[in-house]
Amino acid sequence: MKRDLNKPIVIHWCMNNCNKQGQIPKGVIEGKIRQAEPIKIRFINPRSQEDWRIIESFANESSDIKEIQVEYDFLEYDIKHCIDIDIEKKLIYLVAFSGTSYLDHDARNRLCNMIKKQDNFKIIVYISHKNIAESVCFIQSVYNEVKQGEFIIKPEKNIKNELTDISVLHEAISQIAELYKLFPDIKLSVYDEEKIVRDIIRLPYYMYGNMYITGDGNISMYSFMPAYNYGLSDPQVTLEEAWRKLYHEHATCDLEKILEYPRYWFKYFNRKEIK
């Protein structure tokens, strides 16, 4: 098995950016992704009509891209207002919730209908020490109604999350385990990409084909790693070039640093600006 790749194969693009001034023109990134011909793309947090238009145009074209995923905040959008119904079927949706998201009657019906309609519908629930019970309750009530869909529980990393504390984490896991007892057939997984990547760094088959593009055009290998500016706003710079530089200058070193942290909260421990 080959260890080195020469381009990114899986690209995640976080489309929103709170800092409007740092926003890179979306069309520039769009063109570069098309040129890079990845196998999978995940569009994260589309926020504007332009974002949805870009997703639609990728879904419309017959390229070598095998899978297009869209991760969006369910309460922000009714997908029917954003995207053509024929396109809708080609996409894999991951709708994101925090356990405290309040669903009114209509939103709840909309969610249940989408789960019933789409084979590949996934629900991501971000948990922190503040919403463990609500998250479990939320999954229980939705699954109890639809008996399908795939639920993914991930740790919320944009806040100071006390799941870094082992006793809190164990409490969360034991509450989540109740769901498996209640619904033995439920498709439910609990995972933290950071932990998994950390666990496989030393293995010989591990590859570096991932690329995460932030809302301001910086890049990293994964969302939980530091992102760097390799000039993606420059039309002359291709994603492959930027990715190769990132790979050579930072990837191995940053991945090694992750090994130094016992609880997989690399960015949190390294970036003071995360509150």
Binding site: M1, K2, V10, I39, K40, R42, I152, Y205, G209
Partner: peptide, 19 residues
């Protein structure tokens, strides 16, 4: 993809290139 072969973990997107 163009006679390059990959095995990808669907959830984690970790990649292995295979022959």
């Amino acid at each position: 993809q163009k006679n390059e072969y990959y095995l990808i973990n669907k959830k984690l997107d970790t990649i292995i290139q295979i022959n």
